[in-house]
Simulated scan of single mutants.
Amino acid sequence: MTTTEVPRDREQRKREVLERLENEMDIWVASADTGGVPCLVALWFVWHQDAVWLATRPTNPTGRNLATGTRAARLAFGDTRDVVLIDGDVEVHSREEVPAAAAEAFHRKTGWDPRTDRAVYAYYRVSPRAVQSWHEVRELPQRHIMRDGRWLD
């Protein structure tokens, strides 16, 4: 890929973001505590019913951050030349309260079922509010593909 390539249109970028959400295993999760101290960690995830579902221990910094304060997260895929940033609102579900379909989707994708783990895990549903996607500088002007929870045309 070079910077002379024609920029992808919004529909192609949306399609490729949705493919990554279906196929990637790890996603970067950025959160902050109530004092603004940031935390960045990669977690397994599943894209289920138009939301990203994560699982982590509620006592970990990420679990605490997602459950308190603004209940917001920024998610990202790892490649710096094919950027996807997702800003979303977080809902917390204990392993006893998580919707069975979401937990089963997570289990099918990752092979791990946090509901049966000896340690206590919670599930975090991140509903996308904004999505940006771009390949290098040529796509920066049209990088926004979702705003206010709605895909842009």
Rank of each mutant, 00 (worst) to 15 (best):
C39T: 15
P61R: 14
R143P: 05
Q132G: 08
T34E: 15
M25N: 12
R81L: 07
G36D: 11
V83N: 14
E5D: 15
P114N: 13
H93A: 00
V84D: 03
A30N: 09
A130Y: 08
Y121Q: 12
R64M: 02
V37R: 15
N23D: 02
N23V: 00
T116K: 13
R108Y: 02
R138E: 09
L40I: 08
Q12I: 04
Q49D: 14
P99Q: 10
L85S: 13
R64S: 01
L54S: 05
W134H: 13
S127M: 10
R129A: 10
E24Q: 13
A101G: 11
Q132K: 13
D79H: 14
D26C: 01
R71M: 10
A42V: 04
G149R: 13
T4P: 05
R13F: 00
D148P: 06
A100E: 15
L43R: 13
W134M: 03
A101F: 02
V41Q: 08
H144L: 05
H135M: 03
A30F: 09
V41L: 03
F77S: 05
A100P: 04
A67R: 15
D79L: 07
E139C: 07
E96C: 00
E22P: 02
V120C: 05
D117C: 09
G111Y: 04
D82I: 02
T70A: 14
L75F: 02
V90L: 02
M146R: 13
A122T: 11
D153E: 12
W28T: 04
R95G: 01
L43A: 09
K109E: 06
P61N: 11
E5H: 12
D89N: 15
R15E: 11
T59Q: 14
L18A: 03
S31A: 01
V137G: 06
E104H: 12
G78T: 08
W47G: 00
A76H: 05
V6H: 12
Y123Q: 09
R10D: 00
A130N: 09
D79Q: 14
V98W: 09
E11F: 01
E136F: 03
V41G: 00
V52I: 10
D26M: 14
V46Q: 05
A122G: 14
K109D: 07
D33S: 11
D113K: 05
P141G: 11
T4G: 01
V46H: 02
R118G: 15
H48E: 04
E96A: 11
D33L: 03
A100S: 15
E22D: 14
Q49L: 06
G35C: 05
D148W: 08
T116C: 02
T62F: 00
T110G: 03
T2K: 14
V83T: 12
S31K: 06
A102S: 14
G63S: 07
D9H: 12
G36H: 10
E22W: 01
A102W: 08
T2V: 09
R143A: 09
A32G: 10
F45Y: 12
T4S: 15
R95S: 05
T62R: 08
A103G: 08
Q12P: 02
E91L: 10
T62Q: 07
A67Q: 14
A101T: 11
A100W: 11
T34Y: 04
R74T: 07
